[in-house]
Design a protein around this nucleic acid. Structure first.
Length: 403
RNA sequence: GCAGGGGUAGUGAAGCGGUCAAACACAACAGACUGUAAAUCUGUCGGCAUAUGCCUUCGCAAGUUCGAAUCUUGCCCCCUGUA
């Protein structure tokens, strides 16, 4: 076991895989379950670190791909690492760039299947920006078209230069459109061997770079929506000396909890599990119930910037005309800076006027909403009220949609 | 007063005899967004109808023509230059 990270389980929920715990890193602790906001380019878009901390974020997750391209991971290294560079005192994560391999290359932005329908079109050969082989991936920068190559070793080198507390192994994220045969090949030829290579390079770098705080590495489970592949991958990675695990890959929303349970039943219990890219309330409940400890997702920030704000009664578009003269708080039950200081009419106006403050206020509210939801779930596990809380919360949240 | 230019859907602005309910932009209205190529994208946007469609429109009026937003005449406004 690396000294980069410890995980102490506090509570377990009867009749489910849910638990609470504490992840301890060189930059402090994370009480789990926890929602980790995403700051892809070493910033959560439109927020200062102080605002991010004030809304209750316990950590942030940045991206190796983006920071490698700009400003360059060596700049982060020279800055003294991600924390120093972005003035964030608390724990940090970096994603490996595996997601970008998929989104730049395969061409389907189809990682979560919402309703069974396929609407995305694959990219044409001309548009394709990434090509995968068993050694790694060659890709073109989405910024300037220049060619680059990531391998598990390179991804780890970048992630060590960035210096986040928790890093992820370089994986291949398949899509729901890939055949079973492709999923098997991806797992056996790439994601598994790449996990081995990522871990070896990570250990080497932790030794070579002993002047820096030790970093933790999570292996990333793939296998799409196939139970045998999910279990196999979890056993394979679970037997390795990872500090924790990323629950990744394509999945179908309707059985997301079941898919998470396949993984968590196989993974070692005493290591944290991070659900990659999930933040809708129903998904969060399902994933925590089945063993997920932490989450990251761009959605609260992105949909917020686009004018969709969470309420306990579902997501609402603040740009709707009905808010034009609504001088009440957007969500009277929310304790965030935005809802306690501004009216719906003002938020509506900021959005309609394309004012930058709209981004900030909406992001604060949405991030706070999801952070608080997960905090409340953590409390409900601790006091044994999880199932009641889940039923009450989701009944209300999706009531309008069901009508 | 004279010379020239112009009046097109909420706004700006194309169109200058048929393929025009009328490009495009903006505004407006609605929807989407789940390991960020996203302060983005999509749809609607004269009226009625699910739709082929039907009806009313391109300053006003009268004409020419099989057919006019597009041509003619008159009128009413606006802008520029000049008295």
């Amino acid at each position: 076991m690396s000294s980069a990270l410890t995980f102490d389980i506090r509570h377990r929920l009867d009749g489910a895989l849910a638990r609470t715990g504490t992840i301890t890193t060189p930059h402090g602790a994370i009480e789990t379950p926890a929602f980790i906001p995403v700051g892809t380019k070493a910033t959560l878009k439109s927020l200062t670190p102080e605002q991010l901390e004030a809304l209750g974020a316990q950590a942030v997750l940045a991206n190796a791909y983006h920071l490698y391209l700009r400003p360059g991971s060596e700049i982060l290294d020279q800055a003294g690492g991600l924390n120093a560079f972005m003035n964030w005192k608390k724990p940090t994560f970096t994603d490996s760039g595996g997601f970008q391999v998929m989104s730049l290359g395969v061409g389907f932005k189809k990682v979560i299947d919402m309703d069974g329908s396929v609407t995305e079109k694959p990219l044409s050969k001309k548009e394709k920006l990434a090509w995968i082989d068993n050694e790694g991936v060659t890709f073109k920068s989405h910024l300037d078209g220049s060619r680059h190559r990531f391998t598990p070793e390179i991804s780890m080198q970048i992630q060590h230069q960035i210096g986040a507390d928790i890093t992820f192994a370089f994986d291949e994220l398949t899509t729901l459109h890939d055949s079973y045969e492709y999923q098997v090949e991806s797992l056996h030829e790439r994601t598994h061997p790449w996990a081995v290579r990522s871990l070896a390079e990570h250990k080497r770098l932790n030794e070579v770079r002993s002047h820096r705080p030790p970093q933790a590495l999570f292996g990333v489970v793939q296998g799409a929506n196939y139970e045998d592949l999910r279990r196999e991958c979890s056993r394979f990675l679970g037997a390795m000396d990872f500090d924790g695990f990323g629950l990744g890959g394509a999945l179908t929303k309707k059985n997301i909890g079941e898919i998470v349970s396949w993984m968590c039943e196989e993974l070692p219990e005493n290591k944290p599990r991070h659900m990659l890219g999930i933040s809708e309330p129903d998904d969060i409940f399902a994933c925590i119930e089945n063993g997920a400890d932490t989450f990251d997702c761009v959605s609260p920030a992105r949909v917020g910037r686009n004018g969709a704000l969470y309420t306990l009664d579902g997501r609402r578009n603040i740009t709707n005309a009905k808010y034009k003269a609504d001088f009440t708080p957007f969500d009277a039950e929310c304790d965030c800076y935005t809802c306690t200081n501004y009216t719906s009419a003002y938020l509506h106006h900021l959005f309609k006027s394309d004012e930058l403050l709209s981004n900030t206020l909406a992001t604060i509210h949405n991030e706070r909403f999801i952070v608080r939801l997960v905090d409340d779930i953590r409390a409900s596990i601790a006091d044994g009220t999880f199932f009641d809380f889940k039923e009450r919360y989701l009944n209300r949240y999706y009531a309008a949609k069901r009508k």
